[in-house]
Nucleic acid binder design. Structure first.
Lengths: 149, 149
DNA sequence: TGCCTCATGTCAGCATTCTGACATACGCTG
DNA sequence: CAGCGTATGTCAGAATGCTGACATGAGGCA
């Protein structure tokens, strides 16, 4: 408990709790993805491509919450590893549509199963209604945070 | 929507939403802390010290969700900047109790006000009951994630 | 048409954080 | 008492992600 009324009580702060939860989730994901030679950003990139093939590097960056420069170097590595492909030149504008290769898709299937396991474990103590309420609350928070900026 | 049943639908995944919210919060915090010359970890360190003076470097690291090596270099910088102090040798064991200086406390007051503003904005669209529900859900998720590891 | 703004891809350099390693100090247990 | 496991502080090197910058292409508008 704080004596003064100025600071933020970390024990009850939703922001702090959010950071704690995200940190725990990240750790758990890294634990299950490491055996596959992947990290969280790598997995997010592949999962995004499975759902929306043809996304550009910049769009993938926004979806994985990193800068486009970071995604650029990741895509170079994934291209070398044969998990994704990009055309030599842009069909229109400057954006190069990225797609999964069969190898990338196979790797993603293993990763998805592992990630799904973590998510199931994370939600194991919550009812469906509680999950829906949490989801709605998080969406409202994102909206408020974005509006202000 | 996914065709196959193996992957994770990012539009509805609570894990993805959690990452998105944490990312938005982090961005918003960095925006208000940058004018003060601070980052999120720096702020978290000072806030922890205000609430629990005498915490060791390793304990601060756990509280700020970074490694103790990272906290170590941060504390060196903060010590040079005159925001925290540490005794030359440990009173017992190896752990050195860290404390805020008056300068550090003054800086923290400004940062706390800024951070509080962001948190208020983040929660502006939620009722008190909804906040409590979200808090309980996040706590349950942390517990489940930690248990499995 | 020419210009202005914006988004993208890409390169280079820097900052931050992590992993690995080692020595030291405490507490427990045989 | 001796040994073991654990936690801490610290150093060094490596990985990761970011900021800054530049050129290029698309679209809107005078």
């Amino acid at each position: 408990m704080r004596q003064d009324g100025v600071g933020i009580d970390l024990e009850t702060s939703l922001g702090y709790l959010l950071k704690e939860t995200a940190s725990a989730l990240r750790s758990a994901l890294e634990d299950v993805l490491r055996p596959l030679g992947m990290n969280v950003t790598h997995y997010a990139c592949l999962e995004l491509l499975a759902q929306r093939p043809g996304l550009s590097s910049s769009e993938l960056a926004r979806g994985a919450f990193v800068t486009r420069q970071t995604m650029h170097v990741l895509l170079q590595a994934l291209e070398r590893a044969g998990q994704v492909t990009r055309p030599a030149e842009a069909p229109t504008g400057r954006s190069l549509p990225v797609e999964l290769t069969p190898d990338g898709r196979r790797l993603l299937e293993q990763a998805s199963a592992a990630v799904r396991g973590v998510e199931v474990r994370m939600l194991s103590g919550l009812t469906t209604a509680e999950q829906a309420a949490a989801s709605a609350a998080l969406r409202a928070m994102v909206r408020s945070l974005r509006d202000g900026a």
